[in-house]
Design a protein around this nucleic acid. Sequence first.
DNA 1: GTCTATACCTCGATAGAC
DNA 2: GTCTATCGAGGTATAGAC
Lengths: 195, 195
Amino acid sequence: MEIKVSAADTRAQIVEAADRLFYERGFEATTFGDIASATGLSRGNFYYHFRTKDEILDAVIALRLVNTSAMLASWERASPRPADRIRSFLEILIVNRTKIMGHGCPVGTLCTELSKLDHSAAMASTGLFTLFRDWLKLQFVALGRADEADALAMHALMRSQGVATLATAFKDEAFIRREVADLKAWLGAQAPKSS
Amino acid sequence: MEIKVSAADTRAQIVEAADRLFYERGFEATTFGDIASATGLSRGNFYYHFRTKDEILDAVIALRLVNTSAMLASWERASPRPADRIRSFLEILIVNRTKIMGHGCPVGTLCTELSKLDHSAAMASTGLFTLFRDWLKLQFVALGRADEADALAMHALMRSQGVATLATAFKDEAFIRREVADLKAWLGAQAPKSS
DNA sequence: GTCTATACCTCGATAGAC
DNA sequence: GTCTATCGAGGTATAGAC
């Protein structure tokens, strides 16, 4: 059975390059020329796989939804305890610190850019946040905080976003580590009240 | 003494329109045509006052530095107590909630965009954050928390940024109010340990 | 100082050869 | 399925009349 370099492979190659470039430079600032250079494909070829640049954006968001879901699932497999799973979430600020100091959070910056552009895909990009929000909520429910689970999920998400934004502005790794430690302390204080 | 509509007035008009549009649509997405429509001036006229679009950005950042300093000074005049002054800072999330839900924080979104563009004015835009940071630090020093003042200032700034980003994504006013209340509770717990 | 006209470039998108 | 060539729109920036 021979290896088949099909249209699907080329399409995936385009989407993966666009995923990275939309993150690093922003959606609008990324040109077809940028994607062509990154993939080694010609500009014209993109239109065999997508009708417009917006369709590439849709595909990038769909890819991120899949990748994010897989990441959340891997955190669940890695840790049976909800507090450890939430710590996996908090750790990405440190794991991805270099990229974050350069380009912010991929989710937050995309949502903000699309909101400013009044882009039709703005709601779809918010779905990436919803993925994290719902998953965190489940962990807080498992922690015994069912009543406040959504507010706690939003709070954790909010602080991760704030850290990412200031880390991008100040390029301060020590700040990231300090705030992640603070978040872990906060998480530790969220254990069930009576147990 | 007659009213003199000088070049300085026209220049200020351009910068004020650019200030608003750079916030609402982003720096790159704002065109000279947008600024022309907003001011009623012609595109060509901009080049009498500025050599490039980047020079308009420099002027916008300079204007924001002045306006921000004035706002911080007004908060100092309004409240003698540092905790009340910090509360003035936290309140802007609620006062500006509509704009924030539409376009995020003017400072955070500009810093992030310029960072992604590798723009030479990125550092200058971070200066806007530094203004808040240093002012908040002074208030925490006055609160009797000299040792941790900068970390507390960054923490307050960080949470305001996180709230702005999620508010933009989810357009949730109740979330903003809840997190501001939470921030005020946090601030209340920052009173001097022994007094 | 402000305007109109336009140069020049780059972008997204299209047409058609291979 | 991928390429080259090119179009039309819209961007920044310039030239020169007023």
